[in-house]
């Protein structure tokens, strides 16, 4: 059951472990959320470390997929909730350390802007990021065979299957969101662990969405219907999303029940539409929802469109500054409103 990745020299990982150990030993944090090697080849999985000696299991490599800000919110909101039942003199502060790449720090900024916890409750261990491996692209490399062993050596990925070895450049296996990412460095960090290499194609960020926008409405709707038909409503997308933190999601409410639980296509569409509309100006394009979807639903296409709208209409980019107000959280007299009065005309 050994997993993990044989990497060449990894100075960021080394520094990360040292800093994590120091923070825990100095009692600067109660827990550190990071990644450890998974039990399957070429996987890493979220882990929670509370003792300095556990810091050596932290890894940082292109198999580290999910945005960990979600867990920071989980831990702190649970703590706040528990503290409500504690006498004032016994109240205790909890500090969470988190291993954070660019997109993760953007999610943390959104949390801070939305007053979910205080800046002093989170310690950000920033890591430089060159993108993460898309598990479907990896499966395609293995030709649908089980990956029995795998390694990333520098810029090459090698997988071993029952039918032989296959290899590909790392760049070809990165998630789509990573290919046009402009946030290879953390936006906000308390501890730095190294510098990354910028990905060149950030100017192409909205190209696929631009092409999609220009399709006739019927084709766009047909695409939406087809993608949503794959959804089994496991809600992994919602649950992994750092911006989806409602205490009770409308989809889980039973009195009234907004969304029925049977296999009705319109219920699934409604769930996804409602979730996505809550993402305007709040999606950092970390790709976690797409990465965890067991059915391969193309959620990113629609989220990227909303992201583009926030950019085009309000000049907003989610989670890049603690000061800039979020478009859904503010009102300006100059706000564009053609899309309300003339929804067909503006292309939005």
């Amino acid at each position: 059951m050994s997993g993990g990745t044989a990497t060449v020299e990894n100075p960021v990982e080394k520094k990360l472990r040292e800093e994590a150990k120091r923070l825990l030993a100095d009692k600067k944090v109660d827990v550190i959320v990071g990644y450890e090697a998974g039990t399957l080849p070429l996987t890493a999985t979220p882990c929670f470390i509370t003792a300095p000696e556990e810091a050596d299991k932290l890894v940082w490599n292109p198999c580290c997929t999910q945005n960990l800000a979600k867990f920071v919110h989980d831990l702190l909101s649970q703590h706040h909730e528990a503290q409500k039942r504690v006498k004032p003199e016994a109240k205790r502060k909890k500090t969470v350390g988190v291993v954070a790449r660019g997109c993760t720090t953007r999610s943390l900024i959104i949390h801070l802007q939305e007053k979910q916890y205080g800046r002093d409750e989170v310690v950000i261990l920033g890591v430089p990021c060159g993108g993460y491996v898309d598990n479907r692209k990896l499966a395609a490399l293995a030709g649908g065979e089980e990956i029995r062993e795998g390694a990333i050596d520098g810029s090459e990925v090698v997988v071993k299957t029952a039918k032989g070895n296959r290899k590909a450049p790392l760049g070809e296996l990165l998630a789509d969101c990573c290919l046009t990412c402009r946030f290879n460095e953390p936006v906000l960090a308390d501890v730095e662990t190294g510098k990354g290499t910028p990905v060149a194609a950030a100017d192409k960020e909205y190209e696929p969405v631009g092409a999609f926008e220009n399709l006739p409405a019927e084709e766009r709707w047909a695409y939406f219907e087809r993608e949503m038909a794959k959804c089994i409503r496991c809600t992994a997308c919602r649950n992994v999303c750092p911006s989806c933190y409602c205490r009770i999601c409308f989809a889980d409410q039973s009195q009234p029940r907004w969304v029925d639980i049977g296999e009705n296509a319109s219920d699934t569409q409604l769930f996804q539409l409602m979730r996505m509309y809550h993402m305007v100006g709040r999606c950092v394009d970390c790709g976690s929802c797409t990465a965890v979807c067991p059915m391969g639903v193309d959620l990113r296409k629609f989220l990227k469109k909303l992201d583009k709208d926030a950019r085009d209409l309000f000049g907003h980019r989610a989670g890049v500054s603690l000061e800039e107000p979020a478009p859904l959280g503010t009102y300006k007299e100059t706000d564009k409103e053609e899309f309300i009065f003339n929804p067909g005309g503006g292309g939005h």
Binding site: F48, F71, C234, T235, A236, N239, V240, D260, I261, P294
Partner: peptide, 22 residues
């Protein structure tokens, strides 16, 4: 702690059989 509560495991499981009537 790291579980996303997505239910993929139970949906794919050949023996999981809990149900809800609505």
């Amino acid at each position: 702690q790291k579980c996303l509560a997505c239910g993929t495991c139970t949906y794919l499981c050949p023996t999981c059989h809990c149900f809800d009537i609505s």
